[in-house]
Computed example of a mutant assay.
Amino acid sequence: MNKWIIYVGGKSRTNYEIGKEKHVWGLKSLKSHSQMPQVKAGDSIFFVYNLTRPSKIFPKPIPGFPRVKNSEYFKFEGIAEEIVKGKITKGFYESSLAVWPDNIYQYRFNFIIESVECKVYFTQENVGDDLIKKALLSFHSKGDVANLSFVAEPKKTQEKVTLDINSQELSSLEGKTTYRIAKEVVRDAKLAKVKKEQHLIQYGKFFCEICNFSFYDFYGSQYDYIECHHINPLHQTGETETQLSDLILLCANCHRVVHQSKECMTIEKLKWIVTSSSYNTQ
């Protein structure tokens, strides 16, 4: 079975909502290289609706966004207003029956909706490089389908996985590409930036506010580094007004420890662990 993706621009909201309601999608015309006739019942379909780049999340403007190319030189980052995942119930066909108010869109397929995600962080880390590239391919082809069914070929294939930990040739089949649609809790990067700048102005270098470790002191000034953490995790509070006092600067080690538990460790517990550690009492 194939996986397909279609990009729908923000101006097409009316047609998009009608298509979802009636479980049908169509194109007005087909280009010679269109893969629309290959869409079959049982295939998966992803609709990516309206990619934007809000300035409060991405301060650096990109002219012509999303009319840009994702490559090794440019890391695509944006917000998808909505991503719909569905299953094709009737493959490619032609019909002149009226569905949309502005045109016929006779080249069609039918689908059912399996899931809907809103305000999805559309980055390589969150949705995968291939999904981004194929969404942009659909965008540049004015909403035609793009095939998502690429699977990377592993360099080696092996019928079974060797689990002998004493073996010098432990191996496993790897390299398969998978696609994940996930919901992202959006953070304002400007708050973290201001928090760090204030700390730097006050102290002249970064250090962890829990364990006092300083990249500056240990590795040198060119490696000065710190991470910013929400004292009250956003996945627990939901949408909220965040103040600078709600943030704390942590070294990479402390930040990793905080996020080891599913519910996120409290700062009070982290302080207790650090102060009672045998490493600090030596």
Rank of each mutant, 00 (worst) to 15 (best):
V274R: 00
D144Y: 03
K183I: 07
V258L: 10
E125L: 14
K119I: 11
K156Y: 15
K133V: 01
S71G: 09
H33D: 14
I5F: 00
S12E: 03
N212K: 14
Y121F: 11
K133I: 07
K11M: 12
F215H: 12
S261H: 08
V151F: 05
P101G: 01
V120W: 07
L148F: 11
F111C: 04
S214A: 11
Y16D: 08
S172Q: 15
V194T: 07
K262C: 06
L30E: 04
D217N: 11
L51I: 01
H33S: 11
F76N: 02
I226W: 00
W100R: 05
K176M: 09
S34V: 02
V127C: 02
A182V: 14
E169F: 14
S167E: 03
R108V: 03
G175Q: 13
T178R: 12
P154C: 06
K142M: 13
L247I: 11
R53E: 01
P154V: 04
E114W: 03
G26R: 07
S171H: 15
G128V: 00
V151N: 04
V274W: 01
S34T: 05
L51A: 04
D102C: 04
G78C: 05
K69N: 10
H199M: 15
N232D: 11
L173W: 03
N70R: 12
F65S: 02
K85R: 14
A182G: 09
K134L: 03
V68K: 08
K160G: 09
L30W: 10
Q106V: 10
W4P: 02
Q124T: 09
N110F: 07
V8K: 05
N70K: 14
F58T: 04
M1E: 01
E239A: 12
F46R: 00
T89M: 09
W25I: 04
S44H: 04
S71F: 13
T275D: 07
F215M: 10
F47C: 01
P37R: 07
R53P: 00
S96I: 13
E94R: 15
I113L: 07
K22E: 08
P59Y: 13
H229E: 03
I83L: 05
D129W: 07
K190Q: 15
Q158R: 15
L148W: 10
L163N: 06
D164M: 08
V161Q: 02
V8I: 10
Y73T: 11
G128W: 00
H23T: 01
I165W: 02
V186L: 15
R187C: 08
H23W: 07
N253H: 09
K142A: 12
A80D: 02
N147I: 12
P233F: 03
N103S: 13
T162L: 15
Y7W: 08
P63F: 06
F215N: 08
K85Q: 11
V274D: 00
N253I: 06
F109D: 01
D217Q: 11
S172R: 15
L249Y: 02
Y105T: 05
P61D: 08
F206R: 01
N166Y: 07
I273L: 13
L191V: 06
I273D: 03
